[in-house]
Design a protein around this nucleic acid. Structure first.
Length: 171
DNA sequence: ACGATGATGAAC
DNA sequence: TTCATCATCGTA
């Protein structure tokens, strides 16, 4: 079984999508080859009230793709070193996205984008074969008992409430 | 354990 | 204009 995830998959609450995204595959086309990586770690950034989200202070030149329709990428550059890959969820104008933090054999969001040659050229584009980067369901089922939920990483500035929300999902 | 990296946005 | 950030690597 090999089913490409469509826009509709992402067009709902990011929390729901995050749980379903584990065990799905991130497929990257490099040259004529497709490489598929099982997703093992994600983080949710949901709404403008989320103090850990780039959307915490409204729409900006950087974060505007988060306000776009579901199924598009939000890719930004940070720490002068790393690109971060997010997939936009929910309705248009509602800023929510899922940060892909790790896949099987590659942990860390910066290492992931480096290994898959992902950069800002894909920012705000729709997931799909045309962009060379998309998601597939290969029939892998992750049991709920295999999923750990922990607080998100690197967000000490977000305060007690938002900083402690268990919005990091790990297989 | 700590500095280098160096885009982006907010605070000052 | 200065500072902190949704990391990671190389050096100590």
């Amino acid at each position: 079984m090999r089913r490409k995830l469509k826009k509709e998959f992402f067009d709902r609450s990011a929390i729901k999508v995050a749980g379903k995204l584990l065990g799905k595959y991130l497929v990257r086309k490099i040259g004529v080859k497709n490489r598929a990586y099982m997703i093992t770690e994600v983080e949710v950034y949901d709404g403008h009230k989320d103090k850990a989200s780039h959307a915490r202070s409204g729409k900006t030149k950087r974060n505007w793709p988060m306000y776009g329709p579901a199924g598009k990428f939000y890719i930004y550059f940070t720490y002068g070193m790393h690109h971060m890959l997010n997939i936009v969820c929910g309705k248009k104008e509602y800023p929510s996205a899922i940060l892909i933090r790790g896949v099987k054999d590659i942990s860390g969001p910066g290492r992931l984008t480096k290994a898959l040659k992902i950069d800002k050229k894909l920012n705000a584009l729709a997931a799909g074969p045309k962009t060379g980067l998309w998601f597939e369901d290969k029939g892998v089922r992750i049991k709920k008992s295999e999923i750990k939920r922990t607080p998100r990483v690197g967000i000490d500035h977000a305060g007690k409430y938002w900083g402690r929300k268990p919005w990091r999902f790990v297989v």
